Computed example of a mutant assay.
Amino acid sequence: MHTLHDHIVAHGLPVALYSDQHSIFRINAKGADPESETQFGRATRELGIECIHANSPQAKGRVERANQTLLQDRLPKEMRLAGISDIAGANNWLPGFAASFNWRFAVIPKDAVDAHIAYPGSADELTNILSIQIAKTLSKNLSFQHECNLIQVKISGTGLAMRSAKVTLHDHFDGTRVLRWRNRKYPYTTLTKVQRKTAEADGKSINSRIEEAIAKRGTTDIKGHKPAAGHPWRKMHIGKSATDSKTVIQ
């Protein structure tokens, strides 16, 4: 997702991506639904990029291994020879290596026309598409379970419209997480198992204190309370017949 994002920002949308049959690009499980797709496949479909899953030995890396051009094997050795041992050093060294590599192995294309097109959407929309998207259903109290945590939506008002709503949790490649419903972002809080147990224990503690307070008053039946004989409530005529009242309305 991150690599495709940077490519689109630098060059635009490609017409197609030619890849091997790795499970990142396609679902390889036997008996899988032909219409099912990976997160990467969903993202390319939404961007209008065709994914071509190669079947030839050349596309699977065998020729690259034979010619010693397979970067997965070559890069660590080249960095070791250059004394590279950290990410920052590797990023500074990589452009020079890429230029040297392309000078040795690049081939002039038959058609030099660039088939990339500019991405028409916003940067936020592109980042949103290139994320891991998890569909969830909200409970009546606007929460759901995810990765053993409780996600609680924060919203002003009752939130009746969001009860049982289908929301989407977006995990972005930069580590951020966004909750969306109907193309809008919503704030939320995350409670771990430990935090939930603590909250439940606090709730039980509060309930026990309430029960103790009621017990000290000597009654647990509030409905059984009767007002005194001279209480103003007894002088009210609401609910009494005219003959029972001291004042008869003419």
Rank of each mutant, 00 (worst) to 15 (best):
L4D: 12
V9Q: 11
A10S: 15
P14T: 02
V15E: 15
V15W: 14
A16C: 10
Q21W: 11
G31Y: 07
D33G: 01
E35H: 10
T38K: 00
Q39Y: 13
F40P: 00
T44E: 06
T44L: 04
R45S: 14
L47S: 00
I49A: 04
E50W: 04
S56E: 15
Q58S: 09
Q58V: 05
Q58A: 10
G61F: 03
R62F: 12
V63T: 03
R65A: 12
N67P: 00
Q72C: 11
D73Q: 04
L75D: 06
E78L: 11
A82G: 02
S85W: 06
D86Y: 00
I87H: 09
A88E: 15
G89W: 03
W93Q: 06
G96Q: 15
F97P: 06
R104M: 12
F105P: 02
D111F: 05
A115N: 14
A115E: 13
A118L: 09
A118E: 12
G121M: 11
D124S: 12
E125F: 07
L126A: 07
L130K: 04
S131E: 09
S131L: 09
I132Q: 11
A135C: 08
T137W: 05
T137F: 06
N141C: 09
F144T: 04
C148V: 08
C148G: 05
I151S: 00
V153N: 03
V153P: 01
I155T: 03
L160P: 01
L160V: 04
M162A: 06
K166A: 13
V167D: 07
L169E: 08
H172R: 07
F173L: 11
D174N: 12
T176D: 08
R177M: 13
V178A: 12
V178W: 08
W181L: 15
N183K: 14
Y188L: 03
V194G: 08
K197Y: 11
A213G: 08
A215Y: 08
T219P: 01
G224E: 10
H225R: 11
H231L: 06
H231M: 02
R234N: 14
K235N: 13
S241E: 07
A242D: 13
S245H: 05
S245T: 07
K246S: 09
T247P: 02
Q250G: 15
Q250M: 12
